[in-house]
Design a binder for these strands. Sequence first.
RNA 1: UCAGAGGGUCGGGUGAUCGCGAAGUUUCUUCGAGGAAAGUCCGGGCUCCAUUAAGACAGGAUGCCGGAUAACGUCCGGCCGGCGUGAGCCGAGGGAAAGUGCCACAGAAAGCAAACUACCCCGUUUACGGGGAAAAGGUGAAAGGGUGCGGUAAGAGCGCACCGCGUUUUGGGUAACCAAAAUGGCAGGGUAAACCCCAUCCGGAGCAAGACCAAAUAGGGAUGGCUUAUGACGGGUCUUAACGUCGCUGUCCGGGUCGGUCGCGUGAGCGCGGCAGCAAUGCCGGGCCAAGAUGAAUGAUCACCACGCUUCGGCGUACAGAACCCGGCUUAUAGACCCUCUGGCAUU
RNA 2: GCGGGCGUAGCUCAGUGGUAGAGCAUCACCUUGCCAAGGUGAGGGUCGUGGGUUCGAAUCUCAUCGCCCGCU
Length: 117
Amino acid sequence: MDAGQLQSQELGRLKKRAEFLFVRDGRYRAQGAVVVQARKNPNQEGLRVGFTATKKIGNAVIRNRAKRRLRETARKLLPEYGVPGTDYVFIARQNTCSRTYSDLVDDVKKALLTLAR
RNA sequence: UCAGAGGGUCGGGUGAUCGCGAAGUUUCUUCGAGGAAAGUCCGGGCUCCAUUAAGACAGGAUGCCGGAUAACGUCCGGCCGGCGUGAGCCGAGGGAAAGUGCCACAGAAAGCAAACUACCCCGUUUACGGGGAAAAGGUGAAAGGGUGCGGUAAGAGCGCACCGCGUUUUGGGUAACCAAAAUGGCAGGGUAAACCCCAUCCGGAGCAAGACCAAAUAGGGAUGGCUUAUGACGGGUCUUAACGUCGCUGUCCGGGUCGGUCGCGUGAGCGCGGCAGCAAUGCCGGGCCAAGAUGAAUGAUCACCACGCUUCGGCGUACAGAACCCGGCUUAUAGACCCUCUGGCAUU
RNA sequence: GCGGGCGUAGCUCAGUGGUAGAGCAUCACCUUGCCAAGGUGAGGGUCGUGGGUUCGAAUCUCAUCGCCCGCU
């Protein structure tokens, strides 16, 4: 049982509208095909993450695929680059589905590094 | 070979690694979006509410005939009308003789008929009056049957022939309807996707339905204990009497929010064969179990093959994501394939 | 899941089957030394799209597209 898998199990999900509104008032970083918002939450210790795809970027197929791709990047990158005790929100943009996967990973990595400083 | 008509099928495939959801025999295995899952336009199942049950009014929907179906506004077959050389396609296609309304402009006149120009007769006189007539002109989407012959002062279904229309009879058909004959002698303009009439159908809401479990806090009810009440407060004021309300705490009960569980997938199910039927479809036999999430599961990388584009590096593979389920309708859809049929041209 | 409304000129809206209109905006002219205001006039419309009913449709009707709103 390696540490990465253990941390991914602890990756919590934001579900309620109030939680998204809480993170919206924190810091944000737009990088390439993704917007990442982050805010320290004193009430809990682990990492939590939520995903948003608005109706502006396309139909249900496009929105679902964008959220899946962002979920995949969060699963791989957050345990390494995320700051514990912080809530993150990933927002999809128009080109989230058309961007190649390696570029999307770079976007998320840069955004997380910027927000960690 | 060119141009078309109708119907149907598919919707990239196989494998590997890392992740996600569900189930199971839990170190693992199996399964995991669609033909439209979409729009929510109809019809049902299921659940709750109301009602003894049924009917009526209102409102809504449907509307040629027969059949299929759990039901339908769907489907199948037929009839009639329109379009097309044709294969075929389209049609809310009952009633205008129950009543009401409307038919702009133009036109003399838009509906129990009437009479502008022109026509014919008589009188008077050429600026007229009386009568006949509804063929000609012109208006309009539409002018009280159409064409021809006779007839007449001029004309007119006034008469006749054919066509149309109405009524009756006969024959065919389950019926819509079709055909024939006789008869009437032209009435009854159009519009019901105008109101309306007739026939048939419809109780309402929706899985966020509904059922169950149930924390903290606040509050409700029952009951016991403590406190006290010769008390305080209330009904406009005062007095007396009566009435009502008011503290702390234990136990029990019920409702119920966040949350959780069920509902939730064996079903009007799928495909195969046979039989009945022109068909929709039904019946019989044996086979299969095939998503079940709830801020909502399918993503990433790689290899080979298929198709398309290519600047030979590669790029792309439509429309689109289940949310209780099912039958339809409508709309979107790169491309590929199959079957049947029609017309033209060429050849044999 | 259930229900309601809207779409007409560049913008905001009228228009109850019979030739599509108003205000603002645009353009031209007048007025002024110049601008604004004011006055006169002009242009500008597939009535969201496609069928149907009707002699005739922005209007009636069916389907479809887009937008907005409400309940749960």
